[in-house]
Amino acid sequence: MTKRQPILCVVGPTGVGKSEQSIEIALRYGGEVVSADSMQIYRGMDIGTAKLQPSEMRGVPHHLLDIADPAEKFTVAEWKRQADQVIGEICARGRLPVVCGGTGLYIRALLDDLDFSQTPEDQTLRARLERRAKQEGVRALYDELCARDPERAARIHPNDRKRIVRALEVTIARGTAMSADYEWAPRQGRYDALVIGITMPREALYQRIDRRVEQMWRLGLVDEVKRLLECGVPVDGTAMQAIGYKEVVAYLSGAVSEEEAIRIIQQNTRRFAKRQWSWFRRDPRVRWFAKGPDGQFPADEIARLWTCVEAFLQDIGWSTANRSSTCRMESES
């Protein structure tokens, strides 16, 4: 029997500090970070996706950032293909893959080795649904999705046209609910995985989110969106439907004021964090560790996290020789 490759996943809601903790793990155990963020894959989308600057990576190699043009279509199937390849290369170097991100389907694709070849794409049906969304309104399609697949509808915002259309497309084309693919009983995937979930008091996280949105605005989010539009990124494309970007487009068109745009981004980001919590809470494989209201782990909690990681690495026979390689690289940089 072939030995499964190890991965350590760090998940949780946006703004909770997944990137920083992933770097700490990589530094301690000789790892490389694999991004599992469906918007950080796009080049030129840096401020609004809170993409780390090279100096913030502390010498740790990061993968699957800036791998797609924001004007192109990029599927979860393509991300998984590239992630599997990158993880294999990291393991071949004797390093630990640390998968970091809040895109639940990306994480699940790795953990359960999901096969997307059976997920139909019907361009004619999709175009018809898009026309209906324009003529009847997105809410009409959302109501239909609620009737056809209430479980999937509960995980989609009523105004998220792209995901509503896709869910209806799959449900109608396949004849079964899209949520049928979301059975949470753990499956035997191709990886030996430890999944660490980071959480913190909700109100404290919401305050962090609000401050981060204000900082993004100050750092030049509006100019970033202007550059993307000038480069031909379509307003109705997947990239421009990301939180922070679609609201800036509305601001640039004069539909909302600057204050209103910031408020809506904050509100939509908080709602997104809530959906991420709900998604990951459903997965029994996630081992949760709680930060305090100040955004730091209490001493006993961070000790528990490191003990959990040590036990996992010991169970899979991770060589202690691998652990110092990234630390040496950090000290030499």
Rank of each mutant, 00 (worst) to 15 (best):
K246I: 09
G292S: 05
I243Q: 05
A273Y: 08
L252A: 06
F272A: 15
E258A: 12
F272M: 15
R271T: 02
I264D: 11
R282F: 02
E247S: 05
K274H: 11
S257R: 03
L252Q: 11
D294C: 00
S278G: 13
S257Q: 02
Q267G: 14
F280R: 03
E260Y: 11
D294S: 04
V256T: 10
K246N: 13
Y251G: 06
K291E: 01
V286T: 00
P293L: 01
W288M: 01
D294W: 01
Q276L: 11
I265F: 05
V248L: 12
A273D: 09
V248K: 05
R271E: 10
R287S: 12
F280H: 05
D283K: 05
I243Y: 00
R271Y: 02
K246G: 10
K274W: 12
Q266T: 07
S257L: 04
A273N: 04
Q266Y: 03
A261I: 02
R270I: 02
E259P: 09
G254T: 02
E258P: 05
A255G: 12
K291S: 01
E259K: 15
S278A: 13
S257D: 03
P293Q: 03
T269R: 07
A239W: 03
Q296A: 07
V248N: 05
T269Q: 06
F280N: 04
K274D: 13
T269S: 14
K246Y: 12
Q276W: 03
P284E: 07
D283N: 08
Q241T: 11
S278W: 04
Q276T: 06
Q276V: 13
D294A: 04
A250I: 10
G295D: 01
R281E: 15
F272N: 15
T238W: 15
E258S: 11
N268Q: 14
R263Y: 10
P284L: 09
I264N: 08
R282T: 04
A290T: 13
A255E: 14
R282H: 10
K246M: 14
Q296M: 03
G244F: 15
G237D: 11
S257I: 02
E247H: 08
R271G: 11
W277L: 14
W277K: 12
W288K: 00
L252T: 10
W288C: 00
V286G: 01
W288N: 00
K246C: 13
N268D: 15
I264Q: 12
P293N: 03
P284V: 08
I243G: 06
W279H: 06
E258V: 09
D294V: 06
Q267S: 14
W288A: 01
V248C: 07
